[in-house]
Computed example of a mutant assay.
Amino acid sequence: MLPRTVTTLALLALAALCGPLAQALGLPLPYLLGPLAGSALVATVWPHRLPEGYTFPQPLRQMFLAIIGLMIGAQVTPALLTEAHQYLLTFGAITVFVGLAHGMGYAILRHVGGYDATTAFYASTPGGLYESIAMGEAAGADLTRLMMQQFLRIIVVVTALPLGLSLWIGEPVGSAGGMTLARADVPWSDLPLIVLAGLGGLALGHVLRLPAGQMTGPMALAAVLSLTGWLGFEIPQWLVNLAQMVIGTALGMRFTGLSRGLLLRGAGLSLLSVGAMLTLGVALAAGLHRVTGEAVDVLVITFAPGGVTEMALIALSLQANPAFVTLHHIYRIMLTVVVLGMVTRLRRRAP
């Protein structure tokens, strides 16, 4: 068995190979999905090669989640506020989506998948990945199935939706189409500022107890700095790629010890539940289009239940404001987490 530090370095070296390979294959979000697939392969096929009880270092993952949060938050500009008159309608539609999507996902996992009620409830949320896992584990859900379904939800969305839109439009969209929220020419002298902003954002997310605070804290900080004009900064492309490789590797390692049979069954259930959620999103997007005049494809990615970064990149492909899309995804996540928290407290009080 390899020591833990050597194992982490070996996994990151594998990620450095899988990211460019996925990009060469034209996959969406290649520097996330490539390393995720590589580390998941190690976790499911060769778990005995890992140190006993090995988990990917969480502080490392959190720091790079903060980088992604900064990148997205920097896209929030005063121009975004000019569309505020539409938010009552779109946020209302997101509220309806969260309730119906969760209900459909629960029904599929409970009655088709045969999951117990607690596991099905926490595994079928259309957002709040880490919060769903933490609350579900505390409530007595089957952690293996819960974690698997939540991660598969995001993987299916960030893979299927960009591919589907690419076929619809006739050209690659999102990261597969060369879109990025980063810049290649950021000077190295900006790196200390980026690190300080990331650390400050992590602290903000912790103090305010924000949902997915490792990303939403830095995102909120970057958004405030951008809106007020106090400070503006860009994230270099190499750092964004590195962040996605680290995050993808950490996600893939979550599959350690899962059997291939269980993964295949979970993937089938995820395709059913995500397909139902996306169908609902398309229906709501078509209705909103008639009222707001916003493009249907932009509204569809606004409703997609996962993959905030990739959805923002697709928005860039469609000449839409990525901050508009991201803002609605954050609302979806926060609403899901709030509802989960309320239900969890009610369950605890129940006799």
Rank of each mutant, 00 (worst) to 15 (best):
A160H: 07
L196A: 15
L335K: 06
L263N: 02
P305Q: 11
Y331K: 01
L340D: 02
S226R: 05
T216S: 09
T119D: 08
L81G: 00
G34L: 03
I169F: 14
P305E: 13
L284Y: 13
Y54H: 11
G201H: 05
I154V: 15
M334R: 03
L109Q: 03
T309S: 12
L225P: 00
E131D: 13
Q62K: 11
P211W: 09
M342V: 15
P172I: 11
Q149N: 12
H329M: 06
A203W: 15
L109E: 02
W230E: 09
E137K: 14
L191M: 12
L14G: 12
G261C: 06
V76E: 00
M1V: 10
V300R: 00
E294L: 14
I314R: 05
P218T: 09
G19K: 02
A176M: 07
G281Q: 04
Q150I: 06
F255W: 05
V157A: 08
A212Q: 04
M334I: 11
P78E: 01
R4K: 13
A250F: 15
L2N: 03
S132Q: 05
P126T: 08
L346G: 00
L299F: 06
L129A: 04
S124D: 03
L242N: 07
T216V: 09
L29P: 00
T82Y: 10
W188H: 08
A101Q: 13
I68Q: 08
V6N: 04
G114N: 06
A15H: 13
G198D: 06
L263E: 02
M71K: 02
R183A: 14
L242R: 07
P218Y: 13
T144C: 10
S317V: 05
M148S: 01
G103Y: 10
G205C: 05
L146F: 13
A16W: 10
